[in-house]
Design a protein around this nucleic acid. Structure first.
Lengths: 114, 114
DNA sequence: ATATTATATAAGTAAATTGTTATATATTAA
DNA sequence: TTAATATATAACAATTTACTTATATAATAT
């Protein structure tokens, strides 16, 4: 079950991108749920521009993709990315982050992503 | 066959470390062969201090370990590291780098690591 | 002992990264 | 049309990174 082998230079670029606590957590969350920027702002207690810049980097690399839904822009993992396999094999080693979204839900801050 | 789950913050630190072409290639090489600094200097056509600083970072994080053998210091993957599983799952996605050591061998620049 | 070879470390610098504030754009609601 | 909400982007500052050069340390060979 060997996935696509990735050129080492490109792999390094993606790893650098994921070598940031915020972005890595984002990707782990996106692995089980789509999310919008305002939810990340709540989850990370960070400024909107800071979050926006993080997702932009992930998007530029093709790791995530965006879909506009009304006034929200929903981010999701890009399963068609060349890096998807690599990202998956990473994420398996990380603890579930679903509690972060659950907290939002309890506070009524979860955007309906349906 | 799930390995150790790694705290997300620590994982990010390791990914950042491996998010560098030189260090990522080093680790991929070390996955199949032990190496000393002078070999890396040849392989990467880089300065000795630059290489020394890269391996130091890998060592400080516990990803590699060093053993002195005479005047050489041999680096190898630290299989006892908490990150070993994570690193392994990454490396599987990368192309083999054995040709780099083979070239050294052909030039008679390979240090006997026995 | 001295020279040579392998490696490490320190200090300095240039470039890259990440956040901030301010502002622009796009959608929805009134 | 105007206000409110969600997001993006630009400009800037602080921090971090990854080299460089110079020098130190440690082992080996003469």
């Amino acid at each position: 079950m060997q996935g696509t082998v990735i050129e080492i230079e490109k792999a390094a670029t993606v790893l650098k991108l994921l070598g940031d606590k915020t972005r890595l957590t984002m990707v782990k969350i996106l692995d089980s749920n789509d999310c919008c920027v305002c939810e990340f702002v709540e989850i990370f207690k960070a400024s909107q521009p800071a979050i926006s810049q993080h997702v932009r980097k992930l998007k530029d690399a093709g790791v995530v993709r965006e879909t506009r839904r009304g006034q929200w822009i929903i981010y999701s993992l890009n399963k068609g990315s060349d890096y998807y396999r690599l990202v998956q094999s990473l994420l398996q080693n990380l603890p579930d982050q679903d509690h972060k979204l659950q907290e939002l839900e309890e506070q009524g801050l979860r955007i309906s992503c349906e």
